[in-house]
Design a protein around this nucleic acid. Sequence first.
DNA 1: CCGCAGCATCCGCTGAAGTGGACAGTGAAC
DNA 2: GTTCACTGTCCACTTCAGCGGATGCTGCGG
Lengths: 162, 162
Amino acid sequence: MGGSEAAPDRPGRPLVRKFDQRLNKLIATIYPDERRRPGYSRLAKEISEKTGGTISGTYLWELATGKKRNVTLEQLDVLAEFFGVPPEYFLNDEAAERIDAQLALAVALRDAKVRNLALRAEGLSPASLDALITMVDEARKVQNLSPIDDDDTGTKAPPGGR
Amino acid sequence: MGGSEAAPDRPGRPLVRKFDQRLNKLIATIYPDERRRPGYSRLAKEISEKTGGTISGTYLWELATGKKRNVTLEQLDVLAEFFGVPPEYFLNDEAAERIDAQLALAVALRDAKVRNLALRAEGLSPASLDALITMVDEARKVQNLSPIDDDDTGTKAPPGGR
DNA sequence: CCGCAGCATCCGCTGAAGTGGACAGTGAAC
DNA sequence: GTTCACTGTCCACTTCAGCGGATGCTGCGG
């Protein structure tokens, strides 16, 4: 694979220049596990279901790969709402970095709480654990996370702080 | 003729809802004198010349009157650059209010004599400044200028303002 | 082995973003 | 009065944001 990407011609205003990077970063932040990351079509469907707006898998791909960049405000709003960031994330560099930090922190906190939850769950009766598992699954649905099939394979989340 | 069009037609995402108001406010801020304000065509030409981007007078009118609202990022950038505001101005309410205050000050300071006055006023005692403010208000009355409600920085401006 | 399911990628189309030019109205200079 | 420069408003047109659907590929269960 001759890795050298063709010099990406980056015409247009500076605002639009980094759109693909931002979008990919958001996707990677929400789905840290690359194997379980849904494809663009599925992702588009989840976005539509959660936000009530419409977006197509094809268009998501075009945005993520940089083939299209000049989004309209309506789509920007849909994307921002789904990923849980203010729309300025896509516009301003400083805002993007700051929000990135918040996102990373939120993910880290989530992990810590998950560990905490696991510690506290130890010793509960199987019936109680089953009830909790059901509740967690419902919560995952609400937060548009991929459902966990059976038992966790033990793949730990990479602590690589990036 | 009797058809009173109050323009209650406001569909779409919340992001896009107030675009016309924001744009009109910006124009009114940059050109405070209504009589000397250039038309949309001329304004469009100035925008194109200053920012290097392209925008048409017709489109400006459509945006200002609310006939079109779903702008693309490229146009958003052009408008923001011309009016001297960050693009978030069109997206976020708080940012808009905050920037409005700065903008009014900047426009006031565009007048060299006003700037001079402000420089000289620095360091005066609050009592002296109050006296000067009263005098300026009286002068405004004499010259039939719209009165300034109150000038406090930091707190948000009263909503529903026009 | 074969289907099936999901993936990235592309192609062609619809509709809306965005433009150019025409029209009528207004106030100032003549 | 007429003319001019300018305006707001509209409409026909071009361009591209955005979408549906077809393609070939890979992995998985039968």
